[in-house]
Amino acid sequence: MIIDVVGSGSLGLLYGGKLQDAGNEVRFWTRTAEQANKLSVEGFKVTEREKTIQISSDQIQVKPITELTRVWEHSPGDWLLLMVKQTAIKDVIHEIASLKTRVLNIACFQNGIGHLNVVQSNMPHSNIYSVITTEGAKRQQDGVIRAGIGETWLGKSSDIRSSSLMPMDQNESIRLQGLLQQAGFGCTVSNEIDKLIYRKLLINAVINPLTAIWRIPNGELITREERIMFMRQLYDEAWAVYEASGILIDGDVWDQILSVCRSTASNTSSMLSDVLHGQQTEVQSITGQIVSMACRCGLSAPTHEVLLHLIEGMQPEGVS
């Protein structure tokens, strides 16, 4: 089984490293040649509570994404795991455009919404799967730390099922589930992936922007009543938008948000990390989507809209 992992960030190295350690052939694809060279020379390690996986320089297969289509001409992969952020999706699609007539199995691990339709419209013959994960991973100089053991769900969004030129192949998702389980991830194939997508969108929309504005780790959000009140305001606004849009989510998501803050207390959210490094954030695909959904159903989400503009105003300079 050949698995192509696009993206060498924390999740890419975590999943790719463990999949390779489980006996799969894994090929890593980076944004730049410099990133590929660094990994090919140094390798990397995945640090877990019970063990450390070392992927040495003579074991790793890594190249810049610009070489993926050339390699695929003589050695196509079985799975393409898109582990880049939403902001890099269009660049990846551009690099693999010559594969658009092929049938690929693509798993998308991005936060937010909107990217699945972009991938499907550009790769119309491919099987596009959405992956939702609560795995915690921290990028380190020499690799990645598995900061929290979570769950992984995969499935096909209803939007993708209706627009794809290819019929849904349940066997493919079950194969990927098996590969991830063998690699040590708790993984479930879900027929209700849309509920999970919107649940995670709501959690991210409450947590990520505030950590980016206040420059605090996730756990600090719930240490002061003023912050919890602001979080609740964001939650109530988004929940009203969901109800008006006919989006149904099981369970008490507010309690889940507080639980995420506690379980990832020391984590720096990806949005905060992007702001601190002066990089483009995913705020448009998270907060921006809540604002857009509100407009479409005749509502407003003023608190989300303010945060959207504040964070967009930080780019690309970042903060010190």
Rank of each mutant, 00 (worst) to 15 (best):
N122V: 08
G150V: 08
T303K: 11
E317C: 09
K45R: 14
S245F: 13
I132G: 01
G278F: 11
I290K: 02
A137R: 01
W79T: 02
Q284A: 14
L82N: 04
A212V: 06
H74G: 14
Q280T: 15
L68E: 00
R146E: 10
V283E: 00
A22K: 07
V306K: 08
C295Q: 14
Y15P: 04
S10T: 01
T101L: 13
W214E: 01
Q59M: 15
Q280M: 14
R49M: 13
H74R: 11
E243S: 11
I174F: 11
I106K: 04
D274P: 02
P64W: 07
G318A: 06
T268P: 03
E282M: 07
Q86W: 13
Q289A: 15
T264F: 10
N191A: 11
G17T: 05
G112L: 07
N127R: 07
R199G: 07
I145D: 11
T268F: 03
G246Y: 10
D252V: 14
F109N: 03
H277D: 12
G150T: 07
N208H: 07
K38M: 10
G77Y: 05
D91I: 11
W29H: 04
Q141I: 15
Y242T: 08
I174N: 05
S40R: 15
N208S: 12
A22I: 07
I60S: 01
F185R: 02
L11G: 00
V206Q: 09
L68M: 15
L176W: 12
D194A: 07
I257G: 03
Q141A: 15
G186Y: 10
L11K: 01
V291Q: 00
N204G: 03
V6T: 05
L165M: 14
G114H: 06
T152G: 02
V253I: 15
N171R: 11
E135H: 06
P209C: 07
N267R: 04
G184P: 04
V283C: 04
M293N: 05
E48H: 03
M231A: 12
L68A: 09
E243L: 13
H74I: 11
L19T: 01
N267D: 05
K138A: 08
G251N: 06
K51G: 05
I53S: 00
